[in-house]
Design a protein around this nucleic acid. Sequence first.
DNA 1: GCCAACGTTGGC
DNA 2: GCCAACGTTGGC
Length: 258
Amino acid sequence: MAPKKRIRGSTRTSQSCSKEETKTGSLSEDSVVESAQGVKGKRKAVTSGKTRKQSISKDELHERPQFCHWLMKSEPESRFENGIDVKFGIEDLKALPNQRGCWDGVRNYQARNFMRDMKEGQQAFFYHSNCKEPGIAGIVKIVKESYVDHTQFDKNDVHYDASSKADNPKWSMVDVQFERMLKRFIPLSEMKKIHLEHKARVGPLKDMALFTRPRLSVQPLTSGKWRSLPVMYTPLKVYISVNIHCSKKLREHVIITV
DNA sequence: GCCAACGTTGGC
DNA sequence: GCCAACGTTGGC
């Protein structure tokens, strides 16, 4: 009945299920760190920290900084997996009843863990991936906190996971609702350009998971990134300095007029 | 726990 | 379609 949707996974509108409890993974406030702990199953989600660029400190293992903003990737152009079109752009979300849908199909532990951290009412950028012009298209709101992703048990679904058991489901999802389009689409190419101009050392895009973890389909954003992204890319080229130096009131004004 | 092989993501 | 990056698997 319901339209399909895709993340680096996919989705359909759906209702309910129980909320999952297990919290796993770890992160740090200004850089995304791999989830290394607690993934239930035979193996850790991550191999030895020594072999990875970003190893995990003890502090990071025991602290879970709270993020308030997110970036969620989905594919706006048709692509077929096992004969099923996984297309789901922000326009597809808008077209759903109440402009609301579930973000199912996430099959990456770190992305799943971030979804489990999401709180009702929080906002996320809707990012278009694997398309002609990848980038941030709009803003959605989390309207239902994480619960069991039913597609893991559906043999006909692209994201069926035979290894997941009903009494211990592996995968979770959240419900999101369309909030608004950005006044101007923010292409990945522009974000990259800015990122390179700053040689990735300074600026609001420093350590952004979009660059440090390009394959992560659900990622957190610091408040600074959330605020400055739209500001940075206004047609007027209002720039980082605006965000850094202007008063809070002016900054908010700039942001809401973007 | 280590690590090589394999599979997937996603920009280009 | 290519392929780099990196997450996952599974033998040891």
